[in-house]
Design a protein around this nucleic acid. Structure first.
Lengths: 115, 115
DNA sequence: ATAGTTACCACGACAGACGTAGTACGACAG
DNA sequence: CTGTCGTACTACGTCTGTCGTGGTAACTAT
């Protein structure tokens, strides 16, 4: 199965993560599994990529974290919630996506030209 | 006018440049103008990005350069020609694009969800 | 004269993605 | 009762494509 390279996905991790936070807060491990499921295993985000994206996006004010310390076995879990700025960032990125898609597709050759 | 950011375009410059070399060899300045025209000014590639892409892709064996020294006024021009490996790289990247597009679009919310 | 277009290159900085490794707890198999 | 698997992270350094700055050089139009 073909996989998606980091350079191709670069710039879209924000969209992907923010999408999964649009309705409810969530946390790293859960988001990681959702990306995998929703993409039908076509994109499996690396842990370090995901957690560093959290840090970056919190610094940028797109998300806010809070900790749930009441898990079984004294475990902790860090949740993230999307902010208003995050929603605007998401929307802007989606518009950029539409534009980018239109541009890129002009440089995709017809099947016949590659024989 | 919204513009396309470097992180979003990253990984697609190869496709864009190789597309413009599919039929005939070309050179930096010409390719730069074609990208601008074909994208209707939506994407204006930076000179340094373009020329460093040439260097990288030649190192990877996707393109070959040759120099035209017979221009008016003793000027030179470096042309690039796509190789067989370059064509295969282009085709692979196009397939990856299709896959990526499908994945990303799953994370684009309906209009209504962003109010 | 000088600004604009053509045509290119060197150098270093930046940021996002990644590789490797480590922590720590619970559950379950052998 | 040892070991692996799943859960849930974090630290640290590396890599690579893009970009900012600045430079060279010749022709062309005002």
């Amino acid at each position: 199965m073909a996989e998606i390279s980091s350079d191709v996905i670069r710039g879209y991790n924000d969209i992907i993560i923010l999408y999964l936070l649009l309705n409810d807060p969530s946390y790293g491990y859960e988001i990681s599994k959702q990306i995998r499921q929703m993409s039908e295993d076509k994109y499996i985000i690396k842990e370090t990529t995901l957690y560093s994206a959290f840090t970056r996006m919190e610094k940028n004010g797109f998300i806010e974290s809070f900790i749930d310390e009441d898990l079984a076995g004294g475990k902790k879990r860090t949740y993230y919630r999307i902010t208003q700025a995050g929603k605007e960032h998401y929307r802007a990125k989606c518009e950029e996506w539409t534009l980018t898609k239109e541009v890129i597709e002009k440089f995709i050759a017809d099947e016949g030209r590659l024989v």
